[in-house]
Design a protein around this nucleic acid. Sequence first.
DNA 1: CGTGTTCGTTATAAGTTCTAACGCACGCTA
DNA 2: TAGCGTGCGTTAGAACTTATAACGAACACG
Lengths: 219, 219
Amino acid sequence: MAETGTRTPRERYRDQVRTEIKDHAREQIATAGASALSLNAIAKRMGMSGPALYRYFASRDDLITELVRDAYRSLADSFRTAAETGTDLPGLAHTLRAWALADPQRYFLVYGTPVPGYHAPDDITGIASEIMTTLLDACAAAGLSDGPATPFETHLGDHRDWAGDHPAPPESLHRALTFWTRLHGVLSLELAGHFTGMGFDPAELFASELAGLVEQRGE
Amino acid sequence: MAETGTRTPRERYRDQVRTEIKDHAREQIATAGASALSLNAIAKRMGMSGPALYRYFASRDDLITELVRDAYRSLADSFRTAAETGTDLPGLAHTLRAWALADPQRYFLVYGTPVPGYHAPDDITGIASEIMTTLLDACAAAGLSDGPATPFETHLGDHRDWAGDHPAPPESLHRALTFWTRLHGVLSLELAGHFTGMGFDPAELFASELAGLVEQRGE
DNA sequence: CGTGTTCGTTATAAGTTCTAACGCACGCTA
DNA sequence: TAGCGTGCGTTAGAACTTATAACGAACACG
């Protein structure tokens, strides 16, 4: 029989406590931001004393890194399941926007202000490239335009390390990048509240940018 | 005689110490991020003991708010002087990019991850609208395209609170917004290091997005 | 039913922000 | 020029934080 699935009671309890800690951490981050995350406060809310949490996470930074990993994992899963159900490029954009609006601070864990010295673990960059691959697949499936190659697309033809052995042509690489940067540009400013009080509907701006992306010609 | 310019020695000394504190704070933020800013560490580097800094800034948050205000002011000034010397839209984009690359953490003080509870003081939002006005002027001076109005532009025609009484037509408002969101999309991801290791040159992607913006049709 | 790993505790160190009280020194004014 | 008041820097201390160390108890496993 497969012994892998059966975990000892200790392991099951440990995982349960770890997820409970992360739940409280997420709630705290959503309320006051990641910089205000306090292990002590989490411990008190869980009814146990401070240092107990160090049995489950080596440090505060370790806990945050775990939350960042979960955030990447969550986005990658959302993208993957969307792609597996035959979602096209606009559908992927809608998936991204829904994922971002569901938990803004989770979005900023992935795409927010970086800490100068910090380098993400290798597995996290692996998840990031997994997200990129899903996006590339969708862009390759969306077809090509009829215009000539732009200067940046010829540049991409010579600098496509990030695409690995993906068969997508430079124009698809270009569209994947603009999909990423343009939608992130709208979403990050919207989530950061830079549009509040301006009157217009951010969803319409997002839709407008998306329309430009699928119509090949940008606008 | 105008007594306004003459300041007492106490005031001059106070301003000098304040700017010295902010210089150390900026250096510290550039090194380890805004969340790692420590008043104690600044005081020790300046050769004085911790609580002395509270004569100059009411709190740590007050110092950070001051740095945010300076960052906004710096960007607004860069935009204004660029506009006064007759800079067109691409020139404004270059000004923005140079300003961002000169000090990435300063960029993130303005456009980075927001703290959930925080609300910027009124004068900062005033500087933000000053930046927007300069951008709107440049977009209005760039002229109009020949195509029909997009759905979002008609939406903007009814929701132009943020433009105040600016005479720019909805298409110019639209271009100002896309100028903002698209260039921010590229810049923020570049400064956050999300392009490192991908092989292509972020400057070329920036130039590509800029080209799409000035050619009316987006791409 | 022992035995050993794991967990949670308290104590402690070193750091942080920030307030309070004290004293000195500087600059303005008489 | 002499004094007085304002402002500055100090130390002391409270209330936090992260993190380590040592201890004891509970639990699962052989």
